[in-house]
């Protein structure tokens, strides 16, 4: 099963009482790709992941995971999935290898087979030297790598990663990205959520942008930037509270302008030229930055807010 669709959702919904976390979304994850859900906290990403992971019952719509319906074949689906939750739910009191062992036993993997896999997984996670150490003593990055290794214990066809690098320092993130990239190379399908646009850009072949339970855009990172943002962005920084006033002054200098409390964004095809025009207009920002447009700008364009608000 190297081609085809791994996950497909149509009109997928999840409510908790009066609150609707996921409000009728459509998406499709293809075999072998890295598919991302990008959006701020509370957008409905984690709820979606739990429904795909067959641990949370959907409220409405259609959902197929590995060709099966999570409502009826939850256990079968879970036996073929690798799940890396947002919180490392490792047992801090147990050793690194005991965590892998116990988890492997949940999948009914025979002891001997499991011992062999643990050696490989520790190697993959760069934790071979820490095998007998208590998990409590590991750094955040190590714990996350262990959680990922644990998710691989059943040799899954599809891996779900919820906010895989949240809370990690830059070095730990890059090591983790490297590990995820090597997984992708091995042909596994990855689905991840993130509120970091650089993570989405680095890892995802295709992604959907979520906000308030809805999908507001879909495509590859490049496509999204091309469609919803301009080539370049001029970012003007002001003392807090003054940016909105400056907005009127720069209106007309760019294809589109947006303002936060302390910054104004000018969307333009030629950043240097626009920056020069700003300088001539007499406006005095505390700093001026010309950069390429990113997914952050896509989100900004679509919602008027920043991703990690």
């Amino acid at each position: 099963m190297s081609t085809g669709t791994r996950v497909s959702a149509r009109g997928l919904r999840k409510s908790f009482g009066d609150f609707t976390a996921v409000d009728g979304i459509d998406f499709e994850v293809r075999a072998g790709e890295v598919f991302g859900f990008l959006g701020p906290n509370g957008a409905g990403k984690s709820s979606t992941m739990r429904m795909v992971g067959a641990t949370s019952e959907r409220t409405g719509g259609e959902l197929s995971v590995l060709g099966l319906d999570p409502s009826h074949d939850g256990a079968t689906i879970r036996s073929r999935l690798g799940v890396v939750p947002q919180e490392d739910n490792l047992d801090l009191e147990l050793s690194v290898s005991d965590n892998l062992f116990v988890y492997g036993r949940y999948f009914g993997i025979p002891r001997r087979e499991l011992r062999a896999r643990i050696v490989d997984l520790l190697h993959f996670a760069r934790l071979s030297e820490r095998a007998t150490e208590k998990v409590d003593n590991l750094s955040g990055g190590m714990k996350r790598r262990l959680t990922i290794a644990r998710g691989l214990v059943n040799e899954p066809e599809l891996i779900l990663l919820d906010e895989p690098t949240t809370g990690l320092d830059p070095q730990a993130r890059h090591l983790l990205w490297d590990r995820l990239y090597s997984l992708k190379q091995s042909g596994v399908t990855l689905v991840l959520t993130t509120h970091y646009m650089d993570e989405a850009e680095q890892l995802c072949d295709r992604l959907v942008v979520m906000d308030k339970g809805h999908i507001i855009a879909a495509g590859s990172p490049r496509e999204l930037v091309d469609r919803y943002a301009t080539k370049e962005v001029v970012e003007l920084r002001f003392p807090a509270g003054e940016a909105r006033r400056a907005l009127e002054e720069v209106d007309g200098l760019a294809r589109r302008v947006e303002a936060l409390a302390d910054r104004v964004f000018l969307y333009t095809d030629d950043g240097d030229e626009t920056a020069e025009e700003v300088a001539h207009s007499g406006l005095r920002p505390t700093s001026t930055l010309v950069r390429r447009a990113s997914l952050e700008d896509v989100f900004m364009t679509l919602t008027g807010r920043q991703l990690d608000d």
Partner: peptide, 16 residues
Amino acid sequence: NPWSGAYRSMQASPIS
């Protein structure tokens, strides 16, 4: 509870 995660990790497996 999240800090133990025992049940949550079982849930991610085929265990119902």
